[in-house]
Every structure is written in structure tokens, then in C-alpha cells.
């Protein structure tokens, strides 16, 4: 058991999140996948902070959480406003703009 385990786990979580963005249609779930990606970044940061013996990683993880919170508020508001009109939270339904 080394720190590499944490890092690889984070990489896998990040990938799963990224793939989730590509395969899920519900905008809110897509957004949750992005949250998963951010979380895996946090795990990476915390692990590197421990490895390097500096606290900067933890502080950055903290910032990531704050930014994520702001992003969530804006994102969910946008998704809600589009839902109120279209009665659908599917990202595939938003495709009037193309080519």
C-alpha cells in the first residue's frame, strides 16, 4: 500500500466521471459526473499534499470545494430554467443549435 494507490484510484474516478458525462443524458446527472471529477481532483491534491509535506494541496482542495459550490448553484439554476420551458432535463433535447 503506497500513496500511488490513492492517486490511481483518483485517476479512475476522474475517468469514470468523464465517461459519465459522455453517456448520461440527464443534465443533472451529467453535472453530478462533473462533481465526481472534481472530487477525484481533491483526492489527488490531498494525497500530493501529504507526499510533499506541504499544506498547499489541502488549501487548494478547499478552494475547489468553494468553487464547486458556486458552480453548482449557477449550474442548477441554468438547468432549472431550461427545464421549466422544455419540461425535460435531457441534454439531448437541447440541440436546436447545430451545424
Amino acid at each position: 500500500m503506497t500513496l500511488t494507490h490513492y492517486l490511481v484510484l483518483a485517476a479512475i474516478l476522474f475517468t469514470i466521471g468523464a465517461v459519465g458525462v459522455l453517456v448520461r443524458r440527464n443534465a443533472i446527472v451529467v453535472f453530478m459526473c462533473i462533481e465526481l471529477m472534481l472530487n477525484s481532483v481533491n483526492l489527488t491534491l490531498v494525497t500530493f499534499a501529504r507526499a510533499g509535506g506541504t499544506l498547499d494541496g489541502q488549501v487548494m482542495a478547499f478552494f475547489v470545494m468553494v468553487v464547486a459550490a458556486a458552480e453548482v448553484v449557477v449550474g442548477l439554476a441554468i438547468i432549472m430554467s431550461i427545464y421549466r420551458t422544455r419540461r425535460s432535463a435531457s441534454v439531448d433535447d437541447a440541440n436546436l443549435l447545430k451545424y
Binding site: 468523464a18 459522455l22 451529467v30 441534454v91 439531448d92 437541447a94 440541440n95 443549435l97 447545430k98 451545424y99
Partner: peptide, 17 residues
Amino acid sequence: LGRTQTGFVRSYALGML
């Protein structure tokens, strides 16, 4: 090429990944 601009967010995300 323009047909790759499908209008689907998920396709765009695929391109980005």
C-alpha cells in the same frame, strides 16, 4: 466536417475528451 457539429452536448464532450 460540419456534420460533426451535431448540436449534442455529449458529442462535443466526446470530442473534448
